[in-house]
Amino acid sequence: MIPSLVSWFTDPANWSGEDGIPNRLLEHVAYTAEAILVAAVVAIPLGLWVGHTGRARWLVSLANSARAVPTLGLLFVVSLWLGPRITGDLAFVVPSIIVLALLAVPPLLAGTYAGVQAVDPAARDAAKGVGMTPLQVLRQVEVPNALPLLFSGVRSAVLQVVATASVAAVISLGGLGRYLIDGIALGDYPRAAAGAVLVAVLAVLLDGVFALVQRRVVSPGLAPGGRGVSGRGKDSRSVEVEADSPSTPVRAPA
């Protein structure tokens, strides 16, 4: 298996044109980005609202239970339903983005909600005490403090979507799933295995990228040991920052 996989990857024919790795990789990333954007536009504001007001928490449980819906089955249903209603390429693109976005909503919503929910009540009180409006409290206190959990929501959404975006190939679109579907249809197993490896590598790389972004964006004061919610960052500066500046969690993101 490994030698044929290596020769597949080293064949120049697999690195150019519509069927080449760069193009399929780009398509895959594009489907992922579109789905995450659509989901973020819906889920993040909703999560902030639920977390800030404490109302309609059932939305989070509802979204979580929606994780049980099988993506491939949903894809068939949505594309059969939308097929006669949309013309051209969109008839395949829209169903794919819809099902992938649905996959990304639960982690985004839960991460955002939990992040806001877990903000230290003392920080919130202090913000109110200095005369901030509810919107200012949200923007300057709750959102920055929610970032570590919000980011873990984003990262788990990205991982899920990037790993599942292969289903787009089932309804004739591109992306790395093309290698899986075509490889299996033609009995070309090295191609199918290469597709699987590429999806895995892409998932790891994207997660790494988001880990870096998270490090830059999240306040060092929210690192483990800080007085806010337990964060994920490991920045050593956080200790001294926390020591001389108790108001760190209130800082806006860098």
Binding site: T87, A91, I171, S172, R178, A185
Partner: peptide, 17 residues
């Protein structure tokens, strides 16, 4: 070219995609 399964092929032609 649109690669689809046999049922999908019929649907796509019927729907004008």
């Amino acid at each position: 070219f649109r690669p689809l399964n046999p049922q999908g092929v019929v649907q796509a032609l019927k729907n004008g995609q």
